[in-house]
């Protein structure tokens, strides 16, 4: 199979999923249940995506736990996206370096 076929199928699926609702859902949704559902869904998706996947993103589990804890703390203190992400990265690096030394 030529690479271009994979590229078209992959990109096509990703794009159609995104573009169809944008083009064909034109009315403002007034139904209270749907509005409530749409209110709750984004953060519940992000949370389910993050936990527990974050614990397996780095080679070292302990480092990932440290990165998660620091990110949660910084986010709780309302730090910016960059600060939270950077805090998580530095924590992972610090733990991994420490474990190499010990």
């Amino acid at each position: 199979m030529p690479f271009i076929a994979y590229l078209i199928v992959m990109g096509g699926v990703a794009y159609l999923i995104r573009v169809i609702p944008l083009l064909f859902v034109r009315k403002t949704i007034t139904n209270p249940f749907i509005r409530s559902f749409l209110y709750y869904i984004p953060n519940s998706i992000l949370a389910a995506m993050t936990i527990p996947a974050i614990f397996y993103v780095t080679d070292n589990r302990l480092a990932a736990v440290a990165g998660f804890a620091v990110a949660m703390l910084l986010a709780y203190k309302r730090k910016s996206l960059v600060t939270v992400a950077a805090g998580a990265c530095v924590s992972v690096l610090a733990v991994e370096l420490l474990m190499k030394i010990i």
Binding site: N43, A47, L93
Partner: peptide, 29 residues
């Protein structure tokens, strides 16, 4: 490898920075 490994957690940090404050704002959330 240790550098790329530690960078890989960045995206999850960003997601946390979004949903944690949202949860703080609203008990139901």
């Amino acid at each position: 490898a240790i550098i790329t490994d530690s960078l890989s957690i960045a995206i999850y940090g960003m997601l946390i920075a979004v949903f944690v404050p949202a949860g703080e704002n609203d008990r139901n959330m």
